[in-house]
Design a protein around this nucleic acid. Structure first.
Length: 105
RNA sequence: UGAGUUUGUUAUACGGUCGCGGGGCGCGCAAGCGUCAUGAGGAAAGUCCGAGCUGCACAGGACAGGGUGCCUGAUAACGUCAGGCGAGUGUAACCUCAGGAAUAGUGCAACAGAAAUAAACCGCAAGGAAUCGUCCUUGUAAGGAUGGAAAGGCGAGGUAAGAGCUCACCGAUACCGUGGUAACACGGUAUGCCAUGUAAACUCCACCCGCAGCAAGAUUGGGUAUUUAUCCAUAGGGCUGUCCGUCCGAUAAAUACCGUGAAUAUCGCUUGAGCUUGUCGGCGACGGCAAGCCUAGAUAGAUGACCGUACACGACAGAACUCGGCUUACAGACAGACUCAAAUC
RNA sequence: GCAGGUGUCGCCUAGCGGUAUGGCGGCAGCUUCCCAAGCUGUUCCCGGCGAGUUCGACUCUCGUCACCUGCU
């Protein structure tokens, strides 16, 4: 399944106001039903300097692309990583799959 | 051999599979698909300086305000760089320095100390007095004490005691000569030295600076026509604080036709004071000439994941209009030059 | 990307070339049967960090670090 990047500031604002929040130990996910599957990433200065932040974004995009086929319905999705010492692709991927299965999205 | 100073270069490498950005080529009406090469730094950082570029009037004037400050050069420009001069630390290589003017003027110098720009507390000496464990007058500034700083330092002569009062040496200032483009250096002569520090206090002198920034700005975001209303020419507005000068009318509503993405889209956006190599000029910064090369351009913002091989097991860190510097962060590796110490020949 | 500002006791602040002020707080005492309130005394900073100018720097200058705000 293909997905589109979520870009507009107003879309983010809508999700933060009225979206449903799902938590795991490494991620917070905000979702809302829509016509197609869109994904955005929110990452702030508390996650480190530019190099660190870029790396987290890459890992999240990679893991979302890998799990995109498992989605049953179409949603707006925003991923927010939690602050940690180390970030790895495996944990992000596993947690995403777990969240999708558990909530039957 | 040991210790140290300094200047450069480099910043994991190679191969395979999947994935991302823009580009070329091919297919396709289009969406897109295939393929080819290509895709972060020495600091991309801090935004501390200087420019280009864009808008404001064609970028103007005066005052205010800000900056720079040994000399000569380099450069598009600079608060940068190079070479030199002076001062300071270190045995030395080397390193550091906002390094103009203090008789144009004003301010400040706490505490201590007799006194802080002004002189006499203790002293030293002469004369006088006396109630004889001292006091008064005059001379003096060597010594003591205070301080960051006390009328240049030290030695000799001199004197009642002293004092550049006199002299030698050192220092300072002025003039002259020589060398140097210059800062300045060296030598000579004179002045007994009217005299503190602070201008990163105000200030003076010389030179420089218009203001804003790519979220600048351009095209489209509605345009055109007509009507009405409001402000209005000694007004209002524009790019900065004020003044001069100069330029221009502005805003809102209704009707008719075409148009409908609005923190967006397209441009600005990467060929440039560009890079590499050679050569010539220059001590050098740098410049001239010739040949070759095209080397990210994103816009929620592209470099990652997995596997294999090698070793020193990989630091600081991610372009956002573009350059020239400065500053700061940084695991290491390699190369050049120099200094000191010890030993040997 | 660009522009501007602030760092002083545990917390909030004043001052600005000569070892730093006040309040809240902490501690001790008085008061009370006990607590609170009140009163009295006392404690707590060497100035975000590193240099320079100066006799002397929290203050002036430069660099640096952290935090905050604005432009959309």
């Amino acid at each position: 399944m293909k997905y589109v990047r979520l870009k507009k500031q107003s879309d983010f604002q809508k999700l933060f106001k009225s979206g449903k929040r799902i938590f795991s130990s490494s991620l917070t996910m905000i979702i809302k039903p829509s016509k197609e599957l869109t994904m955005g990433i929110s990452i702030g200065k508390k996650h480190g300097k530019a190099v660190q932040r870029n790396r987290i974004k890459r890992l999240l995009r990679e893991s979302f692309a890998a799990t995109a086929d498992e989605w049953q319905g179409n949603y707006h999705v925003v991923l927010i990583p939690k602050v940690a010492d180390e970030y790895s692709l495996k944990t992000f991927k596993a947690h995403l799959q777990w969240m999708i299965k558990k909530n039957k999205l």
